[in-house]
């Protein structure tokens, strides 16, 4: 017998501020292999055309559909209903600006973070179209890729206690982004330059070590290791800067 499922969905449209945020119940019959992607589209097409949510790839690749499923940040597209109870609550990710119902503005948040951390290769080298590519050890390439796998879904941010209290905190995604460039021999920034960017309370030292990010990352990036790596490097860089600073003044 197919189950009857209830979805308790957060509703709010910033265009209509007089209508208070609320939870609205929707019911539908479970189908085999059903995901929240299927559920939400079905609800919009058959029950409530105004329901707002975001999907793009529906294959856990693009990071569009982060939301709280029964309180836990995850990707809706890869959440199978067979793993859910009869009543499921869907809420938008916190921290990010709410655009309506389950849709939040992760894109703008991540762009600002990328600008703050200057998340691009810093080099004075000019590309020579006639030259062979610079060599790189494949192990290094794989290490960079491991950090680059972040899909900017925001699950680590939405589930982070610090990010929820401190809006300026770059969070695990931001620290991981910095780690990606630190690992890259093509990026010529020194530790002191990175310290300028992330050696602060809004950067890597803001983390209080609760590690929900590591549990919640839907693509399994080892965020705990990345945080430790950047923190260690930045602590050393900070120590050196502090020792050099009085000497410079003297």
């Amino acid at each position: 017998m197919a189950r009857e499922l209830t979805f308790r969905i957060f509703r709010f449209n910033p265009d209509q501020p007089d209508v208070k945020p609320r939870l609205q119940d929707y019911r539908l019959t479970e189908e085999p292999g059903m995901t929240l992607f299927v559920v939400l589209n079905k609800l919009r097409e058959e029950q409530d055309p105004s329901l707002r949510f975001d999907f793009v790839c529906r294959a856990a690749i693009c990071g569009s559909c982060g939301m709280l499923v029964n309180g836990r940040p995850t990707l809706a597209c890869k959440t199978l209903t067979k793993d859910l109870p009869a009543v499921t609550t869907l809420m938008p990710l916190p921290v990010f600006k709410l655009l309506g119902d389950l849709s939040v503005d992760t894109g703008v948040w991540f762009r600002e973070m990328s600008l703050r951390t200057e998340a691009w290769i810093h080099t004075d080298q000019v590309f020579d179209p006639n030259a062979e590519e610079e060599r790189m050890d494949n192990a290094v390439a794989l290490q960079i890729y491991e950090a680059e796998r972040c899909i900017e879904c925001g699950c680590c941010i939405g589930g982070c206690a610090t990010a929820n209290i401190k809006p300026e905190f770059i969070g695990a995604a931001g620290v991981n982004r910095v780690a990606r460039f630190m690992l890259d021999p093509r990026d010529k920034r020194s530790d002191a330059e990175y310290f300028e960017v992330v050696g602060t309370e809004e950067g890597v030292f803001g983390c209080v070590g609760l590690m929900a990010c590591d549990d919640n990352c839907p693509v399994g990036i080892p965020l705990r290791d990345q945080l430790a790596y950047v923190r260690r490097k930045m602590a050393a860089a900070g120590w050196k800067l502090r020792r050099r600073a009085p000497a410079a003044r003297a």
Partner: peptide, 18 residues
């Protein structure tokens, strides 16, 4: 070939020969 190398210059971590 030039386009691939340019992407390497900009930061793509292409898998390398081992």
């Amino acid at each position: 070939p030039v386009a691939v190398r340019e992407m390497a210059h900009w930061g793509v971590p292409w898998t390398r020969v081992t």
